[in-house]
Amino acid sequence: MTTDRFNAVEHTRFTDVKWVSQIGSTNTELLSLARKGGHEGNVLIADMQTAGRGRRGRVWTAPPGTSLMMSILLRPAPQTLQLANASLITSALAISTIEAVQALTGVELRVKWPNDLVVDSPNETEKDTDPGYRKVAGILSETLLTNATIDALVIGMGLNVNWGYVPSELEQVATSLDLLANSNIDRNDLAYRILRNFELHYEELSGEEGQARTLQRLRKHSATLGRRVVILSEAKSGTERLYGLAIDVDDSGRLIVQDDEGTAHAISVADIEHLRLDGR
């Protein structure tokens, strides 16, 4: 038996949950709603996106009904969450998802900085080209500002739920919860649990202690901390590479990387790859 689609999550701010079979992008739709005055707690879930986007406009696609594509409209109170630590909202959704997936399937996801949810690669595929992890979900936050404060924030997630199999071109890149759990996943139940958890973790961000706890949980669930990484930054002269050890995430969500000379760098915008200890 599977859970029915729901229109609200009891005892939460998510009182207006809409489901659509097909849409360009759930984030784009909610950003448009935000510009028209849409209220906090609007949620949009799609079976299929025809113009799904990841960070930096990367295409995000999945066959109909096999992924959970969900966006949430928030209007954080300016006196509690500033732009500088708004990335904690992304972390709160990542933690909420990790906990819901663990409870429903037993699968343990971790956060690859900045906003992917991954599992380790299976051991038998130790090829040089293997990145060391498989992506299961990605999160994209988009923010509307007014006078340097957050007017609205739309946070969207694409979570691979019931792929059935991994297309050969994605074998070394991605996987899906059903394959990790060896069973079909109740997508509606998972969405409900994520939103219920997110209510608690988002509410917690209104206080400094809660923000510190969120950061601690993020560190605990990080797949990146303690890893040797290469930071890839796009510059006009081409891609710049910085090698080092990922040692911390600060309260603005920046990744702290210590380079081989011992200098710490705070990374706010970049792509990273995990490296093996033997440097391959």
């Binding site: 510009r35 930096r56 990335s87 988009e142 923010t143 924030l153 920046r254």
Partner: peptide
Amino acid sequence: EGDELVILESMKMEIP
């Protein structure tokens, strides 16, 4: 009024 000019990226967010 309201048309996007550029999109910035900072702290895991995209900001039009």
